[in-house]
Structure formats: C-alpha cells, structure tokens
Computed example of a mutant assay.
Amino acid sequence: MNQTSRVLFVTPALSVAQRRAAFDDDGPLDPAGAARARAAAGSLPAATRVLVSPSARCRETADALGLAAASARPGLAGIDAGRWRGRTLDEVGAADPETLGRWLTEPDAAAPGGESVAQVCARVARWLGGVEPGSGRLIAVVEPDVVRAAVVHATGAPPSAFWRLDVAPLTVTELSGRLGRWNVALGHALGGA
C-alpha cells in the first residue's frame, strides 16, 4: 500500500495590499490578480481534499481556481503582523526601524501584537506532522509565509532561512513524503498564470 502523502501548496493571486507592499489587511485580490487566477482554473490535478488559509485573498483565489469546496484552516494562516497590519513596509520601517529589523533577522522576534517567524514555522510544522500517511493529494491555497515555513520544515533549514525564500503568486510548491520525511518540488507556475 502506498503511504506517500502529497500536499500542493498554491499561493494566492496578487492582492491590493501586495501591490502597495503592505502587510495583509485581509483585503481582496486586485483585478489583475483575480483575472490571472480565473485563467488558471482547471490547471490543478484532482485532490482528495482542498484546504485554504482563512484570508480573503486565499479564499478568493480558491474560488477563482474552481476550488469552491475548500475548507478554511486557521493553522494554515499567514504570519500575524499584529499592529503592522494594513501598513506599508516603508511606513513601518520609518516608524519603528529597530523592531522591523529584528523581526526580519531574528526568528524569535515578533511583530508588535503579532507572531514571530519561529512561531509560524512551528505552527506549520505541527500541521504537516498531522498529515496522515497515504492521505492522497491535498491542495492547500495558502499565504506565501506558510509555503516558506513548510519548506523550512521539510528541508530541515533553520528558521533564519524563512525570509530568504521568495514565493511568487499563483505558484505550486509540492511536498511529498512518508514516514515524516518530505521532499520538495518548488514553484511551478499554474497554467494560464
């Protein structure tokens, strides 16, 4: 019996906040991002289960891709930016450069009222640990932060590698594995995207 599990992490289309280089404020996809997601509908293989991060842009992307039956999972949420939510990186850098610098370089440093890189990496590692062997193919439309954390865990990289991983919109990163060991196939573009 094949005990291999597959998780296809799909990143959402570009959002209005991303266009502004702002921390996610649970806003919608921008029109061009939504159109690109609709164009990629039907390009994913069949799955036993479809999951989604609770953010608006992940839910909208899942819907645009034809994955309307997606089930929201709080454990797959993007990193919590706390009081920086909705602000641009430039605004935060101008107001509190030291805290931002620590958050970007020290995995245990958290955004004010938010989450550290180490915390999101641990949360995603716990989720991956709960994927049942032989559970088939799962598709999860998730924030890029979740993909970073999953790759950090799967490769055994330290949490300090988190910000060194670039994750493009509308790409698929596949983890396949058994017995707690994961292999990684990085960043395949979705058809039409």
Rank of each mutant, 00 (worst) to 15 (best):
V142D: 08
W127T: 03
V131C: 03
V151F: 14
A149P: 03
V142Q: 13
V151A: 11
S135M: 05
R137L: 05
A125C: 01
G129S: 03
R126W: 05
W127P: 00
R126D: 03
A149R: 15
G129T: 04
R123N: 01
H153T: 13
E143R: 15
V124F: 05
V147I: 09
P133F: 09
A149H: 14
W127H: 10
V147S: 10
G129Q: 05
E132Q: 08
L128Q: 05
V147M: 09
A150Y: 15
L138C: 07
S135G: 03
V147G: 08
G130E: 05
H153Y: 12
V152Q: 14
G134S: 04
G134W: 13
E132A: 06
I139G: 06
V151S: 09
V142S: 09
R123E: 05
V141W: 12
R123D: 01
V151H: 13
A154I: 06
A125P: 00
V131E: 08
E132N: 01
V124Y: 07
A149S: 10
V131I: 08
A150R: 12
L138P: 00
R137G: 01
V131T: 05
P133V: 03
R123Y: 05
A125F: 01
E132M: 01
A150E: 12
P144G: 14
G136N: 07
G130R: 13
V147E: 07
R148G: 03
I139K: 11
V124S: 02
H153M: 07
P144E: 15
E143G: 05
I139Y: 13
A125M: 01
D145P: 03
H153Q: 10
L128T: 02
E143L: 09
W127N: 02
R123A: 00
D145H: 13
V142L: 11
V152R: 13
A154L: 07
A122C: 01
G130N: 08
